[in-house]
């Protein structure tokens, strides 16, 4: 079943048909579960969409071959390590950051991209479509090289995104409930030492004291939060507020919203002060790269900044991790001329 409605409908006026009432109840239940977990309720004008599950897919009226391709996309999204060495050069799966199979609100659910793109993106200063958005996470978050546009794997991953958006109108005008990793208010002061202590207390049991995570066999159990096997300096989560939002809303695993805002921000600040593979837009010099990317991207990250504890300049290296190149061809301007 697909349930989409504007939260406005919940306040009552629209609910004359029994179908609307049932939808209303399901949505209300969905919201109750989230608020019990400490997430905010939707604001009056926000779009609430409950993305369909893989069970819903089995029951959906779609061509069996399409179902097979969506299942393939799901498999790639949740086990992206199968593309290791080809498209992925760190320990991440897409679902390492997009929790709950890319369906969870406050964990950057991925379906909004399917209904809001093509659109202009400040990060690369041109109009992007869904494939290019997915390519972005491959390039930076997976420290990798996206599957070719139009390839089987790219099509399958996009199909999974579009399936999750089923029933939502294109280019919705309302803001989307739980989109991105909304950050709590930034506290007055962030402290490295406090972040380090809180990381050791709450996170290192899974992610390790050096943030390296844990692999068993060739599978990632706990992804690396910094270091060679983590995302590179160009990824969205290197912005301190994005990391704080991710952590507050999703970590420790199974206990969302259990940290205070101060703890989430201190930990984010501590993590943001650790090294990771070079930003693919690196020009050979960290100062120069920062100058070229700061306005559009690195305003909120620690890239090129001096670490207060030891004077180390973050990102001042040419280490690309396990990836044998710096920049995939997909990072290029578009002019539409």
């Amino acid at each position: 079943m697909i349930r989409t409605l504007s939260y406005v409908a919940l306040s009552g006026t629209l609910l004359f048909s029994s179908i609307a009432a049932a939808t209303d109840e399901t949505t209300q239940q969905y919201i109750n579960t989230l608020t019990e977990l400490g997430y905010p309720a939707p604001k009056a004008n926000e779009l609430v969409h409950i993305p369909p599950t893989m069970e819903d897919l089995e029951n959906a009226k779609l061509h069996p071959e399409l179902k097979r391709v969506i299942r393939r996309g799901y498999d790639l999204f949740t086990n992206t390590q199968q593309l290791r060495g080809e498209n992925v050069f760190n320990n991440m799966n897409c679902s390492s950051c997009h929790m709950g199979e890319g369906r969870m609100p406050f964990s950057a659910p991925v379906w909004p991209a399917a209904v809001t793109l093509p659109n202009f993106r400040g990060k690369n200063d041109h109009v992007n479509n869904l494939e290019e958005r997915i390519a972005g996470c491959f390039t930076y978050s997976m420290n990798g090289k996206p599957p070719e546009y139009g390839s089987d794997n790219m099509l399958a991953i996009s199909a999974y995104h579009q399936w999750l958006a089923k029933g939502v109108a294109m280019y919705p005008e309302q803001p989307i409930y739980g989109r991105g990793f909304p950050a709590p208010d930034r506290p007055k002061e962030l402290r490295y030492a406090r972040g380090e202590a809180a990381f050791e207390e709450n996170c290192s049991v899974c992610h390790g004291e050096d943030g390296e995570g844990l692999r068993v066999g060739n599978q990632t159990v706990f992804p690396a939060v910094w270091g060679d096997m983590s995302n590179n300096w160009g990824a969205g989560i290197v912005r301190v507020f994005t990391a704080a939002g991710f952590i507050k809303n999703n970590m420790p695993l199974g206990q969302p919203n259990s940290l205070s805002d101060q703890e989430a921000w201190d930990i984010a600040y501590y993590i943001s002060n650790q090294e990771r593979p070079q930003d693919p837009r690196y020009t050979g010099d960290v100062k120069d790269t920062l100058e070229k990317t700061q306005e559009r991207f690195h305003k909120h990250s620690m890239y090129g900044q001096v670490r207060e504890t030891d004077g180390h300049i973050l990102g001042d290296h040419n280490n690309t991790g396990e990836k044998p190149f710096l920049k995939p061809d997909s990072v290029r301007p578009r002019t539409f001329e």
């Binding site: 969905y30 199979e101 049991v205 068993v216 066999g217 159990v221 695993l253």
Partner: peptide, 27 residues
Amino acid sequence: ERGDWSRYVVSCKSCHGPGNQGAGAVF
């Protein structure tokens, strides 16, 4: 293997490791 996110039940394997056969000394 997949959990039930509608009730925030994280899959067992996300802590207990691949095949739920254990992950490190803690899980």
